[in-house]
């Protein structure tokens, strides 16, 4: 089996890139329920952490993820948030029908940050399925 996650920048992958890639890899390897999303997801997703000025691009290639430093062109979805919010996104619970739960305390906090502009998602229109899949792959909540 090929590695599920690779780094375009090799040994020069940023700590943030390694952390996000490592998080998704661990989720995919240890939680089989995430494999379907991982295999079905084909999208380029950017994440920019506003308070530390770090960014990565995640190229989901249907069963493989290539993580690169910085924001590459041609992104389907871009998430811009501070580090705390990025961590919170990983703690969003997945509710009925595989839809992220924005009604519990963590979900409400995340939704509130979106309303206040502390969490910005570009490309949301037309990419809701992609965003839900990415959220499920990120989520570490049990």
């Amino acid at each position: 089996m090929t590695k599920p996650v690779d780094y375009a920048d090799g040994n020069a992958a940023s700590p943030f890139a390694q952390m996000l890639g490592g998080l998704i890899e661990a989720n995919v390897v240890s939680r089989p329920e995430k494999l379907k999303d991982f295999h079905n997801l084909k999208a380029r997703v950017g994440i920019f952490v506003t308070d530390i000025d770090e960014a990565v691009t995640l190229d989901f290639e249907g069963g493989h993820l290539l993580v690169r430093n910085g924001l590459a062109d041609g992104r389907d979805v871009t998430i811009r948030a501070d580090a705390d919010t990025v961590m919170q996104l990983s703690n969003v619970r997945i509710g009925f029908g595989g839809v992220p739960n924005y009604l519990d305390s963590t979900g409400r906090e995340v939704a509130g940050k979106m309303l206040r502009g502390r969490l910005k998602i570009e490309g949301l229109v037309g990419n809701l399925t992609t965003l839900n899949r990415v959220t499920r792959l990120f989520s570490v909540a049990e």
């Binding site: 952390m19 998080l23 952490v49 770090e54 570490v140 909540a141 049990e142």
Partner: peptide
Amino acid sequence: LQGKLKLKGDLPTVVRYT
């Protein structure tokens, strides 16, 4: 996230307990 501190251990667990 910036690599100023280095973490070893199961990442999902650490993130769950942010």
